[in-house]
Design a protein around this nucleic acid. Structure first.
Lengths: 146, 146
DNA sequence: GCTGATAATCAGAAACACTGAGTATCTCGA
DNA sequence: TCGAGATACTCAGTGTTTCTGATTATCAGC
């Protein structure tokens, strides 16, 4: 018998435990789906923000993603090296780059978007469509609008 | 104006992003609440499992918490050093310890349980009671019973 | 043209958990 | 009862990830 729950009931009542387990499962699923595109989860998130909101500085990208300025450097290094984004000097501020998607970057972003959707479908397989929507809504609301 | 959402809409649709942000917010809130008890989030989780399920080996504790065997050593070192758990040799297997809560450990666990509840209340303040319950239920179900 | 702030970068540190090896002990079977 | 292989715990070292602090170039305000 593969009997019973692997996790203790006392921990399954704890939000941090539930969130953590599900979060790392989500990351693994996404990383797995994205691996064939040779982009990391962070990189795909960066491409998505750039696709949706247009060119922005590294500083701004970091703010949107909620990651450190020095971490952004590495993420963008990878994308730049693969020809998915370009670092163009801002015409109005020569300290800053305007990160711009290349056609290849736009293409990769679109493919990645689908892979992420598949990953979510896979790791949330235990929930039906309406429950997934309800979960998404609750999580977004819990996070607050700010 | 502190206008609008800090996070891009495209990321607020993504489960891994929502889960991650909320997870780290939960960890921070719990760590903050638990700091005055001088126990980490992992340590409090360990105390909780021991309180609920009685003495067990380090190997078993690691399995329940989902953490590596070598990581358990450090967690238990801390608890042992603070007199919250005792490493008693198992009478049936002299390789193994039976981790046992001390009275102080039991007391700390109970206080910690309340602090964690307060932390959850705080970091999920945007949700009402029934929404919190619904979220917990959906997360547990998404994680699967296994 | 100063002064203080900001964008990007880099080297090093800090936090984290894991790998692999070592010791002691157990279980199983001949 | 002996030997082989598995298991519990520990430790040193490694790898990963992110942050801190300093640097360079540039900007904005006075």
């Amino acid at each position: 018998m593969a009997s019973g729950s692997a996790y203790p009931p006392s921990l399954l009542n704890r939000f941090s435990f539930l969130l953590g387990k599900l979060y790392f499962r989500a990351l693994d699923a996404e990383a797995d789906e994205l691996s064939s595109l040779h982009v990391s989860v962070k990189q795909q998130a960066a491409l998505t923000v750039l696709a949706d909101e247009g060119p922005m500085t590294q500083h701004e990208l970091g703010r949107r993603l909620g990651i450190d300025r020095t971490t952004v450097v590495g993420v963008v290094d990878g994308l730049d090296g693969d020809g998915l984004v370009e670092r163009r000097r801002s015409p109005t501020d020569r300290r800053a780059y305007l990160l711009t998607l290349t056609p290849a970057g736009r293409d990769t972003q679109e493919q990645g978007r689908q892979r992420v959707a598949e990953a979510e479908h896979r790791f949330l397989g235990a929930l039906g469509e309406s429950d997934r929507a309800r979960l998404r809504e609750l999580l977004a609301r819990a996070l607050g609008d700010g």
